[in-house]
């Protein structure tokens, strides 16, 4: 066993899959909020695409991309949980928690973007 200090440690995979959903949601939330705040305050992003205001397009696009990423990582968490019945219990349990969190934050990401499809943003 090494007794030398080492600060170079990789982020453990279980932690990534455990917290992927909430962290991606949190970053997405801040991003769409800040863009909306900036867009409405400055009057920028003044374009329309497919009948939707520019700000709504950005909100929906960012949210869908984030939701897709969450979906992929949630699926991986599910597979890690279901494919390894004999695995160490703490990793399996956290993978299941990561799966649950992924589903919740997938819903949250899409739910928060939904009004952008029907509301005039500013």
């Amino acid at each position: 066993m090494s007794t030398h200090p080492s600060l170079r440690r990789r982020l453990p995979g279980w932690l990534v899959l455990f917290l992927a959903g909430p962290v991606i949601w949190y970053l997405t939330f801040w991003l769409v909020y800040l863009v909306a705040e900036a867009g409405c305050t400055t009057g920028g992003l003044d374009f329309r695409l497919l009948g939707l205001p520019g700000l709504s397009v950005i909100t929906v696009t960012v949210s869908v991309l984030a939701a897709g990423t969450i979906a992929v990582l949630t699926t991986r968490a599910y597979m890690r949980w279901s494919d390894d019945p004999s695995g160490e219990d703490h990793r399996r349990s956290l993978m299941f928690a990561g799966f649950l969190l992924g589903i919740l934050f997938l819903i949250a990401t899409l739910f928060i973007a939904l009004p952008a499809l029907v509301l005039e943003p500013c």
């Binding site: 769409v32 909306a36 819903i107 949250a108 928060i112 939904l114 009004p115 943003p121």
Partner: peptide, 19 residues
């Protein structure tokens, strides 16, 4: 606040009822 910002925070406030 602008309507879209209101909707972000309103939706998040409702989602927390799930956990």
């Amino acid at each position: 606040l602008s309507p879209i910002v209101l909707s972000f925070f309103s939706a998040a406030s409702m989602v927390i009822a799930i956990p």
